[in-house]
Design a protein around this nucleic acid. Structure first.
Lengths: 209, 209, 209, 209
DNA sequence: AATGAATGAGGCTTCATTCAT
DNA sequence: TATGAATGAAGCCTCATTCAT
């Protein structure tokens, strides 16, 4: 993408995240990107097209990364997914917030494809949870509820994370992994829960973003 | 409040929850309430006043209910808070979504008071968690992160709950309580985790709403 | 219709006739009607709705008047139709110009109904012509072409007529009737071609408009 | 003119005729001509310049052809003018429609010259009609009205003609000539009304266009 | 010869709000 | 209590045009 195109995109991510899609005007976008509002339209279709492309790209990357983790055993998988989710929601907090919050702003026609992508991603979580329950390593009585709870819990970091906080991001990822295992009823801190795993997940994130 | 006033309020809750504050027009509100848009202004101040009053009332009740739970020991308290949060977010899912999602739509001037109320509520959680950690009954390495994670996890039910689902609400509250204790590193299912406690919490909700 | 509604309508008729639909801006309409452009929208739907309603009403009246003439013999009928067409295009020259010129400005969806109405009206002409040919009173070798030529010829008066001109309108109607009979190959001026007939047709116009 | 210049011109004729001047955007023109909208400006001045040049050239040719017919007697002249008008409006229906319909789209400054050209052309008609009336070969009571009616009638062919129709163009020209003589009150089919005359007029058209 | 980038002005329409009745 | 009428500001988007490359 051209540098200006990137500026438009970045402006949209910032503003949609801060003020919401409907709270962001075309003039706001133009001002943030340093363009006239007419020029904006050289770099996007409609405002909704811009939103869709942001969501699609972000979710697409998340799906791609998530699918790389599906080969491992359920425990390793869920740890990887938690780390992936937490890291991306911290490192890309603006665009992930847009994905998580602005689904409702899409027109039905455009929503379909985005929801399908999100469902693919959530299915990775559900599969890992179900497999862990089947293996007896997770103990939850309502696996679907657990998935929803975990996604909400881990994604929540995008609502408050800043790199200036007292806890380094890799440690935060570990804390979330511990909490997630608690949610899933895993007894005691299992071996894969160390910083090296987090770093491997982070490398994955860096590769795909 | 007059019956018509209630209709306006309910319409606003529904629409703000579904489409967001900026996605909802005065005309939408009027139509949903069965009034002309001019008449609307007999029952509200500005659109933002309406939002503020919805948020203030909802949060006010949550705070009031939460403060009734502060006498118990940390474990009982956190269980009560989780149940309270889950029950209200399920039973009043629209208005709680408005509270959770539309803070950013408030002008700075109006936001202050609402944020203060929310902070009071969240402090109840933080106090309970910190007390539990001090007592050695909770085992978390980042108590502030745990609070944020728990609130996000429990409030998330408002994004998907419907009374038609397969799991009765009281059971859901129990599941969330179990997951919360997992997050907090509590070992084994403790005594207060039964349906009677949920029912007591529900009675509290019914009393205050 | 409310007085203001009528002002909006009249402004639209004037401007659409003078500058065309696409050459008329919403601000032009508002200014001509003495309103703000926002207020305009209390009295119309979209700009296209306004155009459609003008065309539909005008054509509707023309059809209604035309259908009152279908009982007579072909010669009397065609004379009546010519007089009707000429009188309306002179007396209502602006709205008839809009009807005749702005069909192409309608979106396909809206065009359908208007074209159907116009076709109904033109069928009255074709039927009269065909009947006259069958009766041997008209002598034309291409009746469809004659219809098109006559309509164009008679409607053309809307492009130049002004009440201040040297020839009174009723005389103009007679001149057009004479020319029309010439087009249709009728030999010699037939009896019904006098001012009394024109006055009867004019009474019909006055009744229906 | 360069081939590309011709493409631009042809695109403009098509679109101005179909959608009107104000209904045609620069982008539409560019797309139809297969160029970018910036490149368009290498082949034209402003959009209005393009319109003016189309109208001027078309009218100029009409005037030139019309003036070749002024030597004959009134009857032959009017027949020639009718044939010329009908043939050009059928063979060049798009550009003649632009001439006939888009005069109002010209700014006053540019309109003057075009109107002058049109007036020169219409004077040819008026002169022929007046001469015929003076000679006693035409019988019309309002010669100016007859001119307006004839021009409208004959030019109308541009609104519906297609080469695929059931009647060959030369026959159409004859039909229009017959109708025109009817309008002018000429008794009986006079000698010059045959296909050979039409062919001569057609040759004139082919020479000048 | 050709175009991507740029823009001020304006396109149509809706916004939240007020006020006289 | 209720609303039709009214509006300045703003909504998203396209306009015709210019210019550096």
């Amino acid at each position: 993408m051209s540098p200006t195109g990137t500026r438009v995109r970045d402006a949209a991510i910032e503003l949609f995240a801060e003020r919401g899609f409907h709270g962001t005007g075309i003039r706001d976008l133009a001002e943030r990107a340093g363009l006239s509002s007419a020029t904006l339209y050289h770099y996007m279709g409609t405002k909704e097209d811009l939103l869709v492309s942001i969501m699609t790209e972000s979710l697409g990357r998340l799906v791609e990364a998530g699918e790389r983790l599906t080969t491992a055993d359920p425990l390793t998988r869920i740890i990887g997914l938690v780390e992936l989710h937490v890291l991306t929601h911290a490192m890309r907090r603006l665009e992930t917030r847009v994905v998580d919050d602005e689904m409702r702003s899409l027109s039905p026609a455009r929503r379909k494809a985005v929801v399908a992508l999100r469902d693919r991603y959530e299915a990775l979580w559900q599969d890992a949870i179900d497999a862990g329950v089947a293996d007896g390593v997770f103990h939850v009585r309502a696996p679907r509820v657990a998935r929803l709870a975990l996604l909400e819990m881990c994604g929540g970091i995008a609502r408050w994370y800043t790199p200036d906080g007292p806890i380094p991001l890799e440690d935060l990822a570990l804390r979330y992994a511990e909490m997630a295992l608690g949610v899933l009823g895993v007894a005691g801190p299992p071996p894969p829960l160390d910083v090296d795993t987090v770093r491997r997940t982070r490398a994955l994130v860096d590769e795909i973003w």
